[in-house]
Write a protein that binds this DNA or RNA. Structure first.
Lengths: 216, 216
DNA sequence: CGGCATCCTCTTTGATACTG
DNA sequence: CAGTATCAAAGAGGATGCCG
């Protein structure tokens, strides 16, 4: 990217990460951890392959990501964030919080990946009963399933499945997001075609107060 | 900007503010408050005038800025952030903090504007003696002067001058920044051509601890 | 398959000149 | 002061090809 040529830390930051797609690549590496080239490509629907290759090279040159040869069983190169790259977390978080205002719209034709549930969950969900035994919620959309793990005061999301989830939420991403952010209640999302089956008390455990009350 | 087409709040945020120059326009409006077109142009050295006009229109359409006709004495239109625009402050702050790592380099040929002192000051300076009377530090570089106002527990920066500053710091932006961030001491910046004249105790009042000790 | 490189088209930008 | 007009250069997007 062409430098802004301004002696200001905001401009300097954007000199490095202000290019199109760059912060979304960082987002993927933050929520997924180390990735293969193909994982990145799948998590960034719409990116041109040459552009992804270019950006990874630029990020590597800037010291924000590094490549690592995985040992024989996997035998591929993994791309991971360096410490400087990880320190972009507050930037991506701030963007993710600010952008939540645009998630209410239907998003016709938008792509969706289950790891993107991470942002709303980190912002809105809390483990309000840290001493209770660990619990899991499985999220099932058209994309891969994701699991919310609630345990000892922390709430985490990861891509994947679990053998016996306490609660399963299936449906379109948008109403599920409405439920997780506390904007919609269980009856409301059910009316929107979302299926919520299992132990509803887990929801009360993680949802913020006003929504937790309105669950019924 | 072409949409990323991803149902993710980070991507949605970048759909709106991810264009080149856009976040720097927000930066100017955050640190300067309402601005005329020309003020923005001066605070964004390097931007093409048509691009600035385009971006302002886009930001207006997105509801992040609004235009306001100033009353007769000024008789010009002011551009100001809406509430949604102001809420980008955490994003710009996070970028500004992350970008500080690139401010150590000499920045040969970079432009500088005095309002950009705002970011390091907000990050690094504190009023450690809130009950002391208000104090002011004037910063003089090749650009317009700026004033750091220390009063009642808060530290602010504004463009402009003051009649009788308690302390005056003159020189190149880079070593002055080193002083304000606590990376350089007064003797060190003096050796780099910075002149510090007045009541040095004001510096002890605002600088963080380790540097405050190392002033002598 | 995973991991790119090439080629081509289209859009965005940067620089400068000009106007109400 | 507050933009618009013009045009060349750079960058993005999309398709396809190559190689271990």
């Amino acid at each position: 990217m062409r430098s802004y040529g301004q002696y200001c830390s905001v401009a300097k930051a954007l000199d490095v990460v202000g290019d199109r797609w760059t912060l979304l690549i960082i987002r993927e590496l933050l929520v997924r951890g180390a990735c293969r080239y193909t994982d990145l490509k799948n998590g960034l629907p719409g990116i041109a392959t040459n552009l992804l290759a270019d950006r990874i090279r630029e990020l590597e040159a800037a010291g924000l990501v590094s490549r690592e040869e995985a040992p024989p069983p996997v035998a591929t190169t993994l791309i991971r964030l360096t410490e400087a790259g990880q320190e972009l977390d507050p930037v991506v978080q701030a963007l993710g919080r600010w952008g939540i205002r645009y998630m209410a719209e239907p998003a016709e034709g938008d792509a969706f990946c289950s790891q993107w549930f991470t942002f709303p969950v980190e912002v809105f969900l809390r483990d309000r009963d840290p001493d209770a035994p660990p619990a899991t919620i499985e999220l099932r959309t058209a994309a891969d399933p994701a699991v919310i793990e609630v345990s000892g005061g922390s709430v985490r999301v990861r891509v994947g499945s679990v053998s016996a989830p306490d609660l399963v939420i299936s449906g379109r991403p948008q109403p599920i997001l409405g439920l997780l952010t506390g904007h919609l209640s269980v009856p409301e999302v059910t009316a929107l075609g979302v299926e919520v089956s299992g132990d509803h008390r887990v929801l009360r455990r993680v949802l913020p107060d006003p929504a937790g009350q309105a669950l019924s």
